[in-house]
């Protein structure tokens, strides 16, 4: 996402310069689909694949939440809503796992992104994995736990 300058943050759909997170405004951010997909067209295929996988993961997780909430006040002998919720939670886990593995591997191999840096080095020009990536990693672990719990509940 052309992060050549310092204070540059890069997401799946927009990049920002000058520390947007601290200011809380999107004035210095650029959406990838602005100006007729100007930035999106130049993104590598693996990045587009991560965008697609994350979009499907969002849809799948919302479906599992919907069915999970629905199953709290609905019971039927014909079908088991817990198994359905578990299946969607498991699908979310698979999609997230593939997305973060692909992003992590490609960002490390092609852009030399790092998890932690040595304090003695000049950290101004080093690409680091940001908190959004780690939130996605946490969601992956939780979706696996949720799917196991729902399959356990569904079997009883």
């Amino acid at each position: 996402c052309d992060c050549s300058s310092t204070d540059c943050d890069c997401g799946l759909w927009l990049n920002c310069r000058g520390g947007p997170s601290s200011a809380g405004s999107l004035n210095n951010c650029q959406w990838y689909f602005a100006n007729e997909f100007a930035i999106e067209k130049n993104l590598p295929d693996w990045f587009k694949a991560v965008q697609g996988l994350m979009s499907c993961a969002v849809a799948s997780s919302m479906l599992s939440l919907l069915i999970g909430l629905f199953s709290l006040c609905w019971s039927s002998k014909g079908c088991n809503p817990y198994q359905a919720t578990g299946a969607f939670a498991n699908l979310t886990f698979l999609l997230l796992a593939v997305a973060i593995s692909l992003f992590g591997a490609k960002a490390y191999l092609e852009n030399k992104a790092e998890v932690l840096t040595d304090k003695s080095r000049d950290t101004d020009h080093i690409l680091l994995f940001g908190w959004s990536f780690w939130v996605a990693v946490g969601s992956t672990a939780l979706s696996l736990i949720a799917s196991i719990l729902y399959f356990c509940v569904g079997r009883n």
Binding site: C1, C3, S5, T6, D7, C8, D9, C10, G11, L12, W13, L14, N15, C16, P20, S21, C29, M54, S55, A57, V58, S61, M62, S64, L65, G68, L69, S71, L72, Y82, T85, A89, T92, L96, F103, A107, N111, A113, D124, H125, I126, L127, L128, F129, G130, W131, S132, F133, V135, A136, G138, S139, L142, S143, I145, A146, L149, Y150, C152, V153
Partner: peptide, 30 residues
Amino acid sequence: NCLVITAIICVLVTTVGTIVSFATPNWLSV
């Protein structure tokens, strides 16, 4: 029961986490 409540909380946190990471510009930073 307790297991169902734990499971629904996990799904809820997963959904919120997925949406937050999907929409925020901090996957990589310089």
